[in-house]
């Protein structure tokens, strides 16, 4: 787990077909890829799914960001490969690695191309209560702020002699206490002052709030949804009604 892994899920503003899709469409896409990936355990169908998940990444011109996210998970992928080859066999191990890659790709295709505000708005329009959706969008809003604050605290404590890298594992964890306590105290204070500001701007005045922006499904969304459904139906058909096709169960020539 390194920071690069998270960069996969960081939104970057771009003007592409995928970026402009409705978040609900993309949510559906991720859900379908996830379902399909979890249905199969052999190499060929997972490879097909992998190629399918690559299409939105390519269309979104986000290959570089996607690759950096995969790079962050290399250790995890190797770990899965090794463990599964011992427990089962190499075929299964490769399939499992492919499955994880598909999951990572599907999720980064969503988060790389969806503005957190649009995600919140999509949730609201899917009848998630405003308070929850707002909490989610605030959480993403304050990530950089908290990161900067953590850095400041770390600098302050290190200049007073705190050594983060000293000692064994338990000691290293204990070293974090002087960082975490002030961070929590500051965050509670910040929360109070945010609440004050929200309160002063009529937060929660009435139950039925209006919204300046409203998400709408466009022709592009419907086109994309059509492809997704076609893909999903095909995969289901292959899984349940064509169970004996040999090419689907192709194995590595060992």
């Amino acid at each position: 787990m390194s920071y690069t892994m998270f960069s996969a899920f960081e939104f970057k503003r771009k003007d592409t077909y995928i970026h402009n899709l409705d978040p609900r469409t993309k949510m559906f896409m991720t859900l379908i890829f996830m379902t399909v990936a979890l249905l199969f355990t052999s190499i060929v169908p997972l490879l097909i799914t992998f190629i399918a998940t690559l299409i939105p990444v390519l269309l979104a011109k986000s290959v570089k960001e996607w690759l950096s996210s995969l790079k962050g998970t290399t250790m995890l992928l190797v770990f899965i490969l090794v463990i599964n080859s011992f427990v089962r066999d190499l075929n299964f191990a490769v399939a499992m690695v492919l499955r994880l890659i598909v999951l990572i790709t599907a999720f980064s295709a969503f988060f790389l191309t969806t503005h957190p505000d649009d995600l919140a708005q999509a949730l609201i329009q899917m009848k998630v209560p405003f308070d929850f959706a707002f909490a989610l969008s605030m959480a993403t809003r304050y990530v950089p702020t908290l990161a900067r604050e953590a850095q400041t605290i770390m600098d302050a404590q290190m200049s007073r002699g705190l050594e983060l890298q000293r000692g064994g594992l338990t000691q290293k964890i204990r070293n974090l206490i002087p960082l975490i306590i002030p961070l929590i105290v500051n965050s509670v204070r910040r929360a109070m002052s945010i609440a004050e500001s929200l309160e002063s701007r009529a937060f929660g005045a009435i139950k039925k709030r209006t919204y300046l922006y409203q998400l709408k499904l466009t022709k592009g969304d419907f086109l994309f949804l059509c492809f997704l459904i076609m893909y999903f139906v095909t995969m289901i058909y292959l899984k349940f009604y064509f169970p004996f096709t040999t090419w689907m169960e192709w194995k590595l020539p060992l």
Binding site: R141, I194, S197, F203, A205, R209, T210, Y211, L212
Partner: peptide, 22 residues
């Protein structure tokens, strides 16, 4: 920093009147 709760300026400005249900 503690008064800006949205991810863009336009939304920030809309926040209060949205709360009133205008």
């Amino acid at each position: 920093e503690n008064q800006l709760v949205s991810l863009n300026v336009e939304k920030e400005l809309a926040f209060a009147p949205e709360n009133l249900g205008l």
